[in-house]
Amino acid sequence: MPTVAGGRPPVTPPPGRGHARHGRWVVPAVVTLVLACGAGFVVFWTGGSTAGGSRAVAPVLVTGIGGRIPLGTGFDSPWTMVQTAGCGYPSHTERGVDPTRQTCRVFVVLGNPSPEPVRMADHFPDLVDDRGGTHPAVREPPGRAPVVQPGQRLTSVVFTYEMARERRPVRLEGRLIQAGPIVRVPL
């Protein structure tokens, strides 16, 4: 059972089910990718962790999981919310699953009820672990961040991070849209 963000430490997956587990992930991964592309968005994968604390930029909006985070000053501003977050997913490498690391996935919904399009941030929020380590999300493929059109809602935004297996995520912190506020979501 993977660790729900902020919960107990992850447990090593049961042996002998690696192939089945890998197969189990193929369909959700493909579906996620297809849905993300269909929504005009991309899935983010990480390229390892970076030691050090989070960037200190004010002001910071603090909202928990499930809370609507306004990304502007008006009640009709773009908004986002973290739907689920958790670690303990297998960390796949070119040589198979790395037993010393884990993948964390943060599922986000983003809506733009405003009459103006907004562009997603080039650098997406970092995941901060229980020792203050900051883990950046790295976008693939590279390119300009997508635009969220008026009225559009993105439902398949998945931030993916990797970190040492014994670490726990404690918060998500960063920008969702360009020129938007820095948000901090305790996990």
Binding site: G66, M81, Q83, G86, V109
Partner: peptide, 12 residues
């Protein structure tokens, strides 16, 4: 459910 994203979640 084996993974967090497999759980039903109410948020709104």
């Amino acid at each position: 459910p084996r993974w967090p994203h497999e759980r039903g979640v109410a948020v709104d």
